[in-house]
Lab assay of single mutants.
Amino acid sequence: HNLTITQGKLFFHYNPKLCLSEIHKMEEVSGTKGRQERNDIALKTNGDQASCENELLKFSYIRTSFDKILLRWEPYWPPDFRDLLGFMLFYKEAPYQNVTEFDGQDACGSNSWTVVDIDPPLRSNDPKSQNHPGWLMRGLKPWTQYAIFVKTLVTFSDERRTYGAKSDIIYVQTDATNPSVPLDPISVSNSSSQIILKWKPPSDPNGNITHYLVFWERQAEDSELFELDYCLKGLKLPSRTWSPPFESEDSQKHNQSEYEDSAGECCSCPKTDSQILKELEESSFRKTFEDYLHNVVFVPRKTSSGTGAEDPRPSRKRRSLGDVGNVTVAVPTVAAFPNTSSTSVPTSPEEHRPFEKVVNKESLVISGLRHFTGYRIELQACNQDTPEERCSVAAYVSARTMPEAKADDIVGPVTHEIFENNVVHLMWQEPKEPNGLIVLYEVSYRRYGDEELHLCVSRKHFALERGCRLRGLSPGNYSVRIRATSLAGNGSWTEPTYFYVTDYLDVPSNIA
């Protein structure tokens, strides 16, 4: 807008934040220059609390790290170098490059900038070799853009010569660093050979998330399962459950009422301010606690030095998902009996873990797994792929695949051998790939016309006998059925096997 004052003059007093240069501009645009008398524009009460600059400061050096910015700028000295009290560095987070010096300023003089007072450097006698002032900004957020400017702080001049310097606002972004852990990993099994893994992005990506790394490792069953005799009275049979499938998407929606109208769909109840505040506090606490764990609990591995020492970490090797089922080394339970199943799973520490690289999504279907087997899954978020990966501390989750139908069934015939004193040795093959492992066998036998009897055969007993022995049988026709019990439950009964026990007292003698 054009402003013209045809008559009258300007009068400025007691404006401590208004620089004289701005008042002189007002004289020019209003056409009143030359009308004012000496005392109409006070030299001592206008701009006496402001830094009124008329020179431009330029930054000469900028260096960044993930949490620091090192700045240096060209030296500046007023005509009387004693008038320079120091520099004021202003900075704040700036997602967009549209910041002005006066953003967030209120009537009390406060604003949204963080201000650092910096002492002037030592003055050199040689004007050509003056030290460049600077400042190291610490405690910054990774991968965050900051708006920065600097200006001088000078003393009051009796001659009211307006001098000083100020830089333009520059924008500097800190470097990326390792992201925080992925949030809320959930693993479920939808079949006997697959596990579905879902997660949420890290709360602090500290860069642009480029991919996720998912490692999985087959877990050995508890050692007590191999040692305890679950045929003993009072000892509860062990059981394991597989990871249940995901709930429906509708039930997972946030901010939804727990109660549904019987007449149909209901609208979600909005969260109160107290609920939102509580969630923010919980989120802040979780982030602080995660940072504490990362800094205190997890110790970084030592990389190899120039002395030739090897990095103890196993090298990563990509495998196809079809090879995942046989990740671990199978060892027989008892070496003397080769027909026992290889369900003991000690994992070799030198073995390469299978892994998958996930790009542009937060889910993965891990296939080719062994049925009813526990897996430990390790999830890392990465925001750099080359020249070397920059990934987060791992988040861990466990899951067990679903049982395989008929995996616990005894394959092959049940054979028998009759000894003296009416002892019958029953023999059968253990299931080759049971659900988890076989903890015991149930032997059901009966003599024709009598009630059915049951015998429990422990895992250890089966390994020693290759089956079991029935003792003290009365003469007669017998039928026997056997079924295995694994961590997933009972298998199917075998087809009945028949044998006849004679009275050993009636056996004919070869003595003449």
Rank of each mutant, 00 (worst) to 15 (best):
S203N: 13
V214L: 10
R218D: 05
R218S: 12
Q219C: 07
D222N: 10
L225M: 07
E227C: 13
L232D: 04
L237F: 11
S239Y: 15
P244I: 09
S251F: 11
H254I: 13
S257W: 06
Y259N: 07
Y259M: 10
S262G: 08
S262D: 11
E265R: 06
C266N: 08
C266M: 02
P270T: 15
K278M: 08
K278G: 03
S284T: 13
F285S: 03
R286S: 03
K287Q: 03
F289M: 02
H294N: 03
F298M: 09
F298E: 02
R301N: 04
T303H: 07
G308L: 15
R318C: 06
R319D: 04
S320R: 14
S320P: 05
S320K: 14
V324Y: 02
G325A: 15
N326H: 12
V329D: 03
V331F: 13
S341D: 12
S342P: 05
S344P: 11
S344W: 12
S344Y: 09
V345N: 13
V345L: 12
E351Q: 11
P354H: 12
P354C: 10
F355M: 11
E356R: 09
N360Q: 13
N360P: 07
N360T: 09
K361F: 08
E362R: 14
L364P: 01
I366M: 11
F372E: 03
G374C: 03
L379M: 08
Q380M: 15
Q380C: 14
A381E: 00
A381V: 04
A381S: 13
Q384V: 15
D385S: 00
M402A: 12
K406S: 07
A407P: 04
H416E: 04
I418T: 14
F419K: 11
V424S: 02
H425S: 07
E430H: 05
I438G: 01
V439T: 09
V443W: 01
S444F: 15
Y445S: 06
Y445D: 00
R446W: 03
R447V: 12
G449I: 13
G449W: 01
D450Q: 13
E452C: 15
E452V: 10
H454I: 15
H454Y: 14
L455M: 13
C456L: 02
V457S: 04
V457C: 08
F462Q: 13
R466Q: 05
R466W: 14
G472M: 05
S474H: 13
S474R: 06
P475N: 14
P475M: 08
N477W: 08
S479D: 05
S479A: 14
L487E: 06
G489H: 06
N490A: 04
W493C: 01
T502A: 15
D503Y: 14
L505V: 10
D506K: 12
